[in-house]
Amino acid sequence: MNDRIIAQLINVSKYYGSGEGRVTALNHVNLSFFRGDIVVLVGLSGSGKSTLLHLLGCIDKQDEGNVIIDGIDTSSMSLEQLANLRLNKIGFVFQSFNLIPVLTAYENVELPLLFKGMDKKSIRQRVDEVLDEVGLLERKHHYPREMSGGQQQRVAIARALVSKPALILADEPTANLDSKTGAGILDLLMSLNKKEHITIVVSSHDSVVLDRIKSVVHISDGKIMVDEIALHNHIA
């Protein structure tokens, strides 16, 4: 196994429903993501982008094949082990931000660290650091309802980032934002990728995203259109 690979899908399929109405959301996908890369998943609506991110993020189970995260096969992991894996290695950024409404920006970001059992002082340091990184340090005591969509998404990115995950998965992070704000979010993700060498996988319809990120995985009807080796060569 190549230890430059952070995440790998081997012959992965995902189906919804059964019998006549069965939908093949992913069809025998083979795909590798390399450490430090930023990759964009593109494809038409319903092509399987979200499904792929869900499997990669271990919040859903594939019907066939193996998902390997940081060298570990997740197929036979228990729910608790998967939760632990997500807590330590994976950060999510969602289209609709999904902040906890009763918590301030600071508290939202702090949440994963609390459950990792970090001490109070290190938590404070790290949370301030990432809030600063996303440019919201002065807003740390604000509640989600007191912030704009773009700001909320920045908090969400800070939350994904705070536990220094190996992989950040962002499913259409700009879709609920206007193009200018979306561009800012994209800039942030790209700069994090560059500075912290975190692997980021973004799915998007957005032409702004496509124009800026060079590694692109095309997906259509649950199939990958670009060969993974070719993809890597393209980045290299």
Binding site: G57, L79, N84, L85, L87, F94, P101, L111
Partner: peptide, 16 residues
Amino acid sequence: VREIGTLKAIGIANPW
């Protein structure tokens, strides 16, 4: 439900 799903996605175990 959405909030619970988010907490789960972050990696917070169900008993918590």
